[in-house]
Design a protein around this nucleic acid. Structure first.
Lengths: 340, 340
DNA sequence: ATAAAATGCGGAAACGATTTCGAAATTATG
DNA sequence: CATAATTTCGAAATCGTTTCCGCATTTTAT
């Protein structure tokens, strides 16, 4: 259909063997400079482009990396993607992108699709629903290089890139306490998420370090649906012992909190202080501006891609060791946690 | 490396010819139900997955669509992507995604990469820098199906999906006028962008319909860099005849306007009213909340993918006619254009 | 009972590249 | 000048599918 000239045809035009033309185009030492030039100029003239599938079939690699994210409308994941793409493009790699929409069934389907080797490797962040990981195990057992970022699974022995979730949540909670909060709630996603666990641990430890007790009712496990989250938060804010501080594990939940507060007579930060993990550039434009824990999203993407491409291009020299690499987040204090 | 069993090996295991196994797996009428069942169960047992490159090579199609966008951290484009992916996944298509970062040179590189047939078709929105389109012409001449959305190029005879840019800009400007604005500025991107032209035409006609004169100084052509945009807008807001209303062509410029206003003594909406094309869900959380023209992003993505897949699967029955399909936007009035 | 048609499957070519192996042609060496 | 070494290139195999063509065998029609 949209195919152009083939190597064989190009060779015929040049009165050379296909093997020679192939070598010339791949800059083989076996070919004289003279013929190389002839081949290259003719290739350009005839608009020759190597068929990527023939090459992939022969070489058993596709120069393609699959990226699986749970959400696209999310500044963190979008920035990670940009970070991955930057490095990938530099090395001639293409990106297949899949959005699971936080749905583990979709995640399974996508992962199974990748079992056929369409991509040379996978970079992913699991969905918040993901509990059983047999589908991921199968991928790894098949020998497909896989790197996790942000939402990782320690059961799979490979390299993971994350931010300092525990410390950031600890510091974030401490910040709320320093600003005078006495009762702090944690808004988070799925229980099985590595980020949830770590951030909750940081939150818990900060609470306990004050000699306070942990109140399970103050940890909310939210969903991916704005409406039900608002309901959940509304119930929290209307309860008898409502919190005066909130740590949101993802920006979506901070936004939901704003939406909820708008429906009440409460106001931020006087009645409720709010801090959130977020990479939103509009954090300082919100009303009030949002105190954020900003993750090094682009760097995380960069590092994932760099390591993966090393592994793919020099398999002998690089391994995806079973390790977790942490890149720290940064807290930016704004009005939402201000003492008045 | 990560490859499993091949069709030939599967056939050997079954003591059948590869051709038979292939036909059985593809549910050919030539194969008896009995052998089909045997083949399928053995395929599952041995975890057989067809090599996609061998298939692509043979069939000359990849079940892959390339999507080229100018920006990833942008609610509109992210939603369009989601819309495309939804339909693509339903039909077993994969998505190769490329971000040009509004850079025409990157766009050219990416487009040239796609000349080799790695993708069966392309869905794209051109960069704001794109003026010369010979690289896009080449794609089209090669016979590669291509669909434009939002930022289109009429020179390429294919189907384009856009929103009602002219009417929306006209209505948006009228809205500012109705709210009492006497001097309205237009913030937009590249001069060659189809959206810029149409929205400017709508803006112009709205101004002229009042019997006012057009002031070229009130149309700002911004870049993709936040800092320089803020500078530009700051100069506008500090000029002797500064505007009392702004129509922003993209949400990024509305955000830049907020940032700029924060640096001045002005306030929205009392000194300056603001309306913007935007698909940001946080529009109502901004300070003040932002009056928006919301584009039907997901629908646009859906329609692009639907048409393209029809064209790819039934080439005889569907053509990418040279036409523009318009899906209307919706204006949501909020505080940023309120009369006090 | 025989011819015709349908059914079920196998063999081999084809898709377009890379690469192994080997053979000329050229140059260097004794 | 004869032989060895080095360049430079070609023939053919290969990757894993799909599909054209062919050939039995069975079923249906005459």
């Amino acid at each position: 259909m949209a195919s152009g000239i083939s190597l064989k045809e190009l060779a015929a035009e040049l009165k050379l063997a296909p093997s020679t033309v192939s070598r010339a185009l791949n800059d083989s030492y076996e070919i004289s400079e003279a013929t190389k030039k002839k081949v290259i100029s003719m290739a350009e003239k005839l608009n020759y482009h190597a068929n990527p599938f023939a090459r992939s079939l022969r070489e058993n690699k596709s120069k393609t990396i699959a990226v699986i994210i749970p959400e696209r409308i999310n500044n963190f994941f979008a920035q990670v993607m940009d970070g991955i793409e930057e490095i990938a493009q530099e090395h001639g790699y293409h990106l297949l992108v899949y959005n699971t929409h936080e749905d583990v069934e979709r995640e399974k389907k996508i992962v199974n699709l990748l079992l056929n080797g369409r991509a040379d490797a996978i970079v992913m962040s699991v969905s918040s629903q993901t509990s059983d990981i047999s589908h991921l195990m199968k991928l790894h057992e098949r020998g497909l290089p896989i790197i996790f970022f942000d939402r990782v699974r320690s059961e799979i022995p490979t390299t993971k890139f994350i931010t300092n979730d525990y410390e950031s949540a600890f510091e974030g909670t401490k910040h709320l306490i320093n600003q005078g909060c006495k009762k702090i709630a944690l808004l988070t996603l799925g229980k099985d998420l590595s980020t949830t666990k770590e951030r909750q641990r940081g939150y818990n430890d900060a609470i306990l370090s004050e000699g306070w007790e942990l109140d399970p009712a103050l940890t909310l496990y939210c969903s991916h649906e704005e409406d039900s989250n608002v309901e959940l938060i509304e119930k929290l804010l209307k309860s008898s012992d409502k919190p005066d501080g909130i740590l949101a594990s993802v920006e979506k939940l901070a936004f939901a909190t704003y939406q909820t507060v708008k429906k009440t007579t409460l106001s931020i930060p006087s009645d409720l202080k709010l801090i959130s993990f977020s990479n939103a550039s509009v954090a300082n434009l919100l009303n009030p501006s949002l105190t954020t824990i900003t993750q090094p999203a682009v760097s995380i993407g960069n590092e994932c891609a760099k390591l993966l491409i090393k592994k793919l291009t020099k398999p002998k020299h690089y391994e995806l060791l079973d390790q977790v690499i942490t890149i720290p987040s940064k807290i930016t204090v704004r009005e939402s946690t201000l003492v008045e």
